[in-house]
């Protein structure tokens, strides 16, 4: 019985390994392409490890398009939204979980049900609204809505806060702490890990967003990184400069890959929770 289990496990391990090759293979191939000379990508049979390795494309990309300003714009949007938005979201989650005020549950339900409104259903009037303010082709339409908070984050933090005993809050109330201090020095430190995980997930979502930037940003130097690499693809595919395109794309996914590898435990845990709770 035991040896049969071992054979099955070995078989499963091999299958998982083959699956892993399929998952990671295309990405490795992307990396390999980016390290080749322009002509070498057309070699048949394909070469996986370029010889010699060309790092030249990683120099060229900075001149070939507004990659640097793309990174800058993406960082500005993602950092400002997640920092301010996490503050407003966690404050609201605290209020929903621990304070008493009229119509609290109705407002919360209203927020939750708004989650089923898809972005495409509101993007046209939103565009019109921001264009009246003269905000088209600026980063503002991509920043300002996020500053008001993120309902998904509020939902998960509120859920998480239910494990924080009310007695702590009540005791501090009687001691005469202000309501903001109840949040900032008592509640927030307790929910920091959950906040961090949600912040990372949100950051990744904004970093990888494509639809809203493509609606608002026209000038090359205003575009986010994702739009810049899409333009690389459109421009340089005609010249079949695939190494250049792949090098730029690698740059676009590298930051999230690093964040993921560093925080993989927290990210994977909080994602797993979202399914069980959802």
């Amino acid at each position: 019985m035991k040896s049969r289990r071992r054979i099955t496990n070995t078989l499963i391990f091999i299958l998982l390994l083959i699956g892993a090759v399929f998952m990671i293979g295309p990405l490795l191939w992307m990396l390999s392409t980016s390290l080749k000379d322009k002509q070498d990508v057309f070699a048949l049979p394909p070469v996986w490890i370029p010889n010699p390795v060309h790092f030249g494309k990683y120099k060229e990309i900075w001149e070939a398009g507004p990659l640097l300003s793309g990174i800058k714009n993406s960082v500005i949007i993602a950092v400002s939204v997640t920092l301010v938005g996490t503050f407003t979201s966690s404050l609201a989650a605290f209020s929903f979980a621990k304070l008493k005020f009229p119509a609290k549950n109705k407002i919360f339900l209203l927020m939750l049900s708004s989650l089923m409104i898809p972005y495409p259903a509101v993007m046209i009037p939103q565009f019109f609204m921001f264009s009246k303010l003269g905000w088209v082709d600026t980063l503002l339409p991509l920043i300002v809505p996020g500053l008001f908070g993120n309902i998904v984050m509020i939902f998960f933090l509120r859920q998480y806060l239910s494990s924080v005993p009310n007695a702590i809050i009540e005791a501090a109330k009687i001691d005469g702490s202000s309501y903001f201090r109840l949040y900032s020095s008592i509640t927030f430190p307790l929910i920091k890990p959950a906040v961090a995980a949600q912040l990372i997930l949100w950051f990744m979502g904004i970093w990888n967003d494509y639809l809203s930037p493509i609606i608002y940003l026209n000038s090359p130097e205003k575009q986010t990184l994702q739009l810049v690499i899409a333009n690389f693809n459109a421009t340089y595919a005609i010249q079949t400069d695939y190494p250049l395109i792949m090098a730029a794309s690698i740059i676009a996914l590298l930051p999230m890959l690093i964040i993921f590898l560093v925080f993989q435990k927290q990210i994977i845990e909080s994602v797993a929770i979202s399914g069980v709770k959802g």
């Binding site: 792949m246 990210i267 994977i268």
Partner: peptide, 18 residues
């Protein structure tokens, strides 16, 4: 778990180009 999750966190634009 990490390997299978890498495509999930990868930018959809970059992945589409690839």
């Amino acid at each position: 778990r990490v390997i299978y999750y890498v495509p999930v966190i990868s930018s959809l634009a970059a992945v589409s180009i690839m």
